[in-house]
């Protein structure tokens, strides 16, 4: 048997503490999500049932009518007391079901979400990583060579691009590449005449369709990473340990690698992990403009139809993404920054 002290030690362990906090936060946000949706007026299923009951009381007084209404309430988690509903909701989350979607009734919401998710993760995951790599590389370069004219110009350009709304860039890209030059498709995720599958022609087609939406995301986010990386590098270049490294007569390459990059990467890696957590939210604007079948577009449609099951599912998924990203950051940060390490 473990002594109390040992148990206390485990509970104090950094990793254990983080994971407990993570589970607690998930539970808390799921609870908040549930009550927000309960407090929001206009659950269409509830409203529909109520209006039917009022308009055709004769049917609902029959056994069949009551059973029907009961069945619907059960399907949409509207039956019994609010606490009963709440516990069913939590149980369903653990099981991974969110109830039937109105969009594609009686298909469950999670099926729609799972269909949209790979597109979003593919598009946004790859764009986010490319944008990060590009942004960090260019940012480090123009920070390191901050006096050169090219650097000044690039920094200025990045500032302008990073402030551009994504839709603006997206529309320009569509106009130029899709409708003027006919180089790339401006809508959809693949050619509907092709049968989806893992064969070269289809994969190539998917990449072609993803290029413009990806570009409109990459340009704006890379510009942001350029700005933050550049300013991190410039801050580090003024640090005392950099002057000291220079006084030691180290080669510029060593200083750049072991002193500048080493110190600017931890915050940027944290930033990347956090942005990756946000990708399951989808990119609402870009997916809408390019008619891309991802989570963002699904959410937009669900909101329009007041499809509560899908909305709840997407919301829980985003919270899950962000919290998980934060957990991962908390777990990897001690590995890259010794100052965060503890006993």
């Amino acid at each position: 048997m473990k002594s109390i002290n040992e148990i206390k030690k485990i509970a104090n362990n950094y990793i254990v503490r983080r994971i407990v906090a993570y589970i607690f936060l998930m539970f808390l946000t799921a609870t908040i999500t549930f009550f927000i949706f309960r407090l929001m007026p206009g659950n269409p299923v509830e409203a529909y049932l109520r209006s039917m009951e009022q308009r055709f009381p004769q049917y609902f007084e029959t056994r069949a009518g009551m059973e029907l209404s009961q069945k619907y309430k059960e399907m949409f988690g509207l039956q019994g007391s609010i606490f009963h509903q709440y516990f069913c909701f939590l149980r369903n989350i653990v099981k991974g079901t969110f109830g039937p979607s109105l969009l594609t009734f009686p298909e469950p919401a999670e099926k729609l979400i799972l269909q949209a998710l790979p597109w979003t993760i593919g598009l946004l995951g790859i764009s986010t990583i490319i944008a990060w790599l590009l942004g960090v590389l260019v940012g480090v370069f123009i920070g390191w060579k901050r006096e050169s004219k090219v650097s000044t110009f690039t920094a200025w350009l990045a500032l302008v691009v990073s402030q551009m709304p994504q839709y603006f860039l997206a529309i320009i890209l569509v106009f130029v590449f899709a409708y003027t030059l006919y180089l790339l498709p401006g809508t959809g995720a693949f050619n509907p005449l092709l049968k989806p599958g893992f064969y070269p022609e289809f994969i190539f087609d998917v990449i072609k369709h993803a290029t413009l939406p990806a570009l409109s995301i990459i340009l704006v986010t890379a510009a942001g990473w350029i700005i933050s990386s550049r300013s991190l590098v410039i801050t580090i270049l003024n640090e005392d340990y950099l002057i000291f490294a220079e006084a030691k007569g180290l080669k510029p390459g060593t200083i750049l690698r072991n002193y500048v990059m080493k110190n600017m990467l931890p915050p940027q890696i944290t930033g990347l992990a956090i942005s990756l957590g946000f990708i399951v939210n989808g990119a609402y604007v870009v997916e809408w403009i390019f008619n891309y079948p991802g989570i963002g577009r699904l959410m937009a449609i669900a909101v329009g139809l007041r499809d509560y099951s899908v909305m709840q599912g997407v919301m829980l998924l985003s919270i899950f993404g962000v919290l998980t990203a934060n957990l991962i950051v908390d777990l990897i940060l001690p590995l890259i920054d010794p100052r965060v390490r503890r006993g």
């Binding site: 005392d240 340990y241 002057i243 110190n263």
Partner: peptide, 16 residues
């Protein structure tokens, strides 16, 4: 020639 700068408290790279 070696140099111990004035602000040498911060002269060490915190991550090495």
């Amino acid at each position: 020639i070696s140099y111990i700068p004035q602000a040498s408290m911060n002269s060490l790279n915190p991550l090495l």
